[in-house]
Each structure stands twice: as structure tokens, then as C-alpha cells.
Design a protein around this nucleic acid. Structure first.
Lengths: 145, 145
DNA sequence: GCTAATTCGATACGTTTGCATCGAGAATGG
DNA sequence: CCATTCTCGATGCAAACGTATCGAATTAGC
């Protein structure tokens, strides 16, 4: 069956493309202000209703191990960008909420970051390619398991 | 211009897909034997003629910072999976060569790893999708800058 | 309703990573 | 040919990460 080989090849291409693009983007990222992992957390919170999310759900969006995210959040909380509150629905859980200051930081960084992405990604693919790529990647992500 | 928005959307999709797939793959990876970054180094060496590469070139394939790769290689060398030799063409450079033991380890791990990829990626997209995705990602990667 | 198994987040601890910097060698420019 | 600049890889050091483990809370099975 050729799908076996094709799947590995496609993943290889996707992974290398991700590395290539990420290198450019990371080089232009304002790491002094915030790390990419921290940005990713702010990003995920920002698009949530009420700008809050359970730590458990936040963890599912990233590749970070649970203890790593736990401490990353403590660092963000220490700098005033997020707040931690117990989940009223589940006493085990913790709700992480983006503060106004955190949202302001996110928006400020997002502007530069999106410009980097537009330059690197938009410069390599035309509109049709971009749309196609997004569809395929969404399909790939959807199939959890 | 709508390409601005599309580029950011497409990158977002690609990145999230990469995270989703990587989570599955990493969970099934034999981390006891070797880390994913270490595997990536062995992988890159394995497909090189003579199975050797300059550390500088190796560095361009990964997202690791130069000192991190330097020490990762030292660890691999300490375990006998690679060997370091001065580059006769350039006395600054170091050639990293995959040993037979390193190649054997790579092949052993690659079997399981490719099975993980096939299951996760091949299960979500059909052959046409996979081919399309590979083309788009290669195009995206090609445009370095 | 009670016990066992699971989930959630935090902490201890060793490992890995990145940033800053260095010395040695190679390229550049006069 | 010499001085300046750049490239390559290594090391000091602090920050961040992952594995193992724990206590508290919830869920599942009897």
C-alpha cells in the first residue's frame, strides 16, 4: 500500500516546513518580553470566551508537559499577565484568566508576530495554496487519536 | 489584501496540526532509548552520503541553538552513536559521522516511529491529500528567507 | 454508600536548553 | 601581506523542561 510511504513523506515535509518557518519567525520574535511558549498560552486564552480556560484544557493545546505548563503559568501570574482561580465546577481544577495587562501584551506582540508570518508564509504561497494548506492541516488535526 | 489574513490562518492551521500529530507521535516514541531531538540528528546523518555532515549544516536542519546541538552531539558521541572528526577542508569545522551502532539504533527506532506516523497521519488523510500536502509544504519550506 | 481507580495540579530533582561569550581559523579588503 | 571582519564550535551559567511522585478531588463499579 502506498499510503504508508506517503504518510511518512507528507509528515516529513510538514515537519521540515514547520522548522524552516519557525526558525525565521522565532528569530524575529521579541523573546526579551515573552517566550514563544508563553505567547502561545496568551494566544489560546485570548480567543476563549471570558479569556479564561482550565489549565487542563490549556495543556491540551500545547506540547508542554503538565508540570512545565504549571510553572510557566506561575511565571506569567507572577508578572501579572494571568490570574489563577479555583474552578467552581471542579475543586481539583484551576481556571487561568488573561488579565487586561496580559491581553495588552499579547496584542502588542501579535502585531509584530503576524507581520513575520505574513512575510515568510505569504511570500512563499499564493492565496489558493494557503487556503488549500489550511484545509488539509485542519483535516489532519481534526482526526485526534 | 486578503493574503495577509490567509497567511496567518494557514500558519495557525499548520502549527496546530503539527502540535496535534506530534503529541501522538511523541507519546509513542521510545524516549528511554533516545530523545526526539537526538533521533532527528541521527535521521539527518543517516540520509547523508557517508552518513556524515558538518555540525554547522546539521544545525541548519533543526531548531536547536548552536550550543544545544554541540552538547547533544557530545552526548551521542559519549554513547558511541556518532563520532567527531576535524574537517580537513576547514580547520574550524567538525564532521559528525554516524557509527554503525548509531545507524542500527536509528533503524530500530525508525520502524516504530514510522508506524506511529503512518497510523496518525495516514489515518486522517487519503493518498491525494497527502501528496498535495507534501507539495505545499515543500513549496513553503523552499522559500528560505 | 463505599472502595478503587482516575483526574487534576503542584513539587522535587536531574537533564536539557538558550544566551552571552570566547578562542581559533578562514575570508575580505586595502 | 596585514588588519578587520566573519564563521565555527565550545564553555559558563541561569532559565526552562521532563520524569517521577504526591495529595486532593472526582468518577466508576460494586
Amino acid at each position: 500500500m502506498s499510503t504508508r510511504v506517503d504518510a511518512v513523506t507528507a509528515w516529513e515535509s510538514l515537519f521540515r516546513a514547520q522548522v524552516a518557518v519557525m526558525r525565521t519567525i522565532a528569530a524575529e520574535f521579541p523573546t526579551r518580553d515573552i517566550s514563544l511558549n508563553e505567547y502561545d498560552v496568551l494566544f489560546n486564552l485570548s480567543r476563549q470566551p471570558g479569556r479564561e480556560l482550565r489549565q487542563r484544557d490549556l495543556n491540551r493545546q500545547t506540547l508542554l508537559a503538565q508540570p512545565s505548563l504549571s510553572r510557566l503559568i506561575d511565571r506569567l501570574a507572577g508578572r501579572g499577565y494571568v490570574e489563577k482561580a479555583p474552578d467552581p465546577k471542579d475543586a481539583r481544577g484551576t481556571l487561568i484568566r488573561l488579565t487586561d495587562e496580559g491581553f495588552a501584551l499579547f496584542r502588542r506582540v501579535a502585531v509584530e508576530h503576524m507581520a513575520s508570518i505574513t512575510a515568510r508564509v505569504g511570500g512563499a504561497l499564493d492565496t489558493d495554496d494557503l487556503a488549500q494548506l489550511a484545509v488539509l492541516c485542519d483535516k489532519l488535526r481534526a482526526d485526534e487519536g
